[in-house]
Amino acid sequence: MNAMIEIAGVAKTFTLHNQGSAVIRVMEGANLTVNRGECVALVGASGAGKSTLMRMIYGNYLTASGSIVVGGVNVARAEPRDILALRRDTLGYVSQFLRVVPRVATLDVVAEPLLSVGVDPEIAKSKAQALLQRLRIPQRLWGLSPTTFSGGEQQRVNIARGFAHGYPALLLDEPTASLDAENRETVLTLIEEAKARGAAIIGIFHDEAARDRVCDHAIDVTAFVPEAQ
């Protein structure tokens, strides 16, 4: 099988217990397949459910019904420890926000995904250095915690962390937002390299030119919004 990510009949509801137990249906009948070496863009207006679907694939949001199979694991039904193993070995996620333990040096933040799959610390460190260099994070910042960095710098640290380990599947939420032209070019090259090594990628790009360049096709999630809300 060439499919790395297979989403079938997925639905999502939110129940707001503290607001009159309102049940909000946000998604129904979502279907999507991503093959190895392929990049699929999620498109649709703001609020249509692009990030929601991405978070469900990562196991960050629960799935009400349907299946989300990533590398053979059905995230919609899997036990926490199976999802943790999937996230460690197979599925990477570059979110829009960097969330790290305070005081941990940038270099260690980037090397951490490698260390957790058992890569030798020296090799992990040199890979992290190479990525930070490519993403133009000045070397004098490597020993500092990224929590104090600018938005664009944090975004690049997040990308470096997401690309450090060669995940077979990657989720990218606005990877080129808040980047200058040079860094945007680097990130697009990183995505192309990941595709070339066979990674299946799902991305959200508001940057249309970037989307057209790296994505093989686009899925409009508006089609998954339930009717008659």
């Binding site: 129940t15 960050n60 629960l62």
Partner: peptide, 11 residues
């Protein structure tokens, strides 16, 4: 559940 799931999508 998973920590981030329970915190981000509490049921």
């Amino acid at each position: 559940g998973l920590t981030d799931q329970v915190l981000d999508d509490p049921q």
